[in-house]
């Protein structure tokens, strides 16, 4: 699998505070990578390191296979765009003027692509309206347009829907999906609005206390979150044999527990298990959403 971004034991400390503690993550090409973590978990710090705004204390990362210590990293960075926290724009300028500035920074000789870019993000009718008069959603879309100026194929969006109204959220979501499908742009989207993220992401990375606690695909997450019957038995091997024989999907979670992704007849199951000298100790229905999964992964206790 091709990876756009790979980090290897990336650490960042501010005096005695360790913002990142050996983050290792892999962002596949073409993915919408949901970067999930609570406030202060290290999401924005990691993004700042990747964008070159800050230097790692230790560890490394590579963008399109180029190590951060390599002098060619600047060329790799030119393939990426980012909206870190707030869109990077001049509020006194119009959408077009902001894009022109960006084009000049990139050394693009003509402004031919600006009209198409404005149309892509739905800001082609803003005319002489200054960015400071835009709604939050419009600014966010302009931020994305600015990040796309050099035909980038990798975008990092840090909390792109924070503070947006429902209409703004839908606009940004549709834009991200469109760019991913039509232009094959890889995204990293950091967010703690998990419900919204679950409508976009194809891959997830869960970060807590400066560490990646789990990376998984949306498919894996769906399996982990789908409705199931959690059973506790004396012998999971016997349970597996019984379920295999009946063609029922399941996953063994530990030595005594398993999740069954069906609604089997409990009486029949108990008798079948008894034939294998196995007892069913308890069973309960469970269904998790992304939020529940995240909480179960990182723990729900309040932290400073």
């Amino acid at each position: 699998m091709d990876y756009v971004l790979k980090t290897n034991a990336l650490c960042k400390s501010y005096r005695k505070f360790h913002a990142l503690n050996g983050v290792t993550m892999n962002v596949p090409k073409g993915a919408i990578y949901g970067f999930v973590g609570r406030n202060g978990a290290g999401k924005t710090t990691l993004i700042r390191l990747v964008c070159g705004l800050q230097m790692p204390t230790s560890g490394s990362f590579e963008i399109y296979g180029v190590q951060n210590s390599d002098s060619k990293i600047a060329e790799s960075r030119r393939r990426m765009g980012a909206v870190v926290e707030t869109p990077s724009l001049f509020p006194e300028m119009t959408a077009e003027e902001n894009l022109r500035y960006q084009y000049r920074l990139l050394g693009i000789p003509n402004y031919d692509g600006i009209g198409e870019l404005l149309k892509l993000v739905g800001l082609d009718t803003t005319g002489s309206k200054k960015a400071k008069d835009f709604s939050l959603g419009m600014r966010q879309r302009l931020g994305i347009a600015i990040a796309l100026c050099g035909d980038q194929d990798f975008l990092i969006l840090d909390e792109p829907i924070n503070g947006l109204d429902p209409q703004g959220i839908i606009e940004v979501r549709e834009l991200i999906l469109k760019l991913n499908r039509e232009r094959k742009i890889t995204f990293i989207i950091s967010s703690h609005i998990l419900d919204e993220l679950s409508k976009l992401a194809t891959h997830y990375g869960f970060i807590d206390d400066g560490r990646i606690v789990r990376e998984m695909s949306a498919e894996e997450l769906e399996n982990a979150c789908r409705k199931s019957l959690r059973v506790t038995v004396t012998d999971t091997a016997a349970l597996a044999a019984v379920l295999d024989k009946r063609g029922i999907a399941y996953s063994i979670t530990d030595a005594a527990n398993a999740d069954i992704y069906a609604r089997p007849n409990i009486s029949e199951l108990v008798f079948a298990l008894a034939d294998h000298n196995c007892q069913l100790i308890s069973c309960s229905e469970r269904e998790e959403n992304l939020e529940g999964f995240f909480i179960s992964l990182v723990g729900g206790e309040a932290r400073e």
Partner: peptide, 18 residues
């Protein structure tokens, strides 16, 4: 200072300007 407050400085870094 407007470059810092508007975040434009970030774009300069991302574009690979030293």
């Amino acid at each position: 200072v407007a470059e810092f407050s508007g975040g434009i400085i970030r774009n300069k870094f991302i574009m690979g300007h030293s």
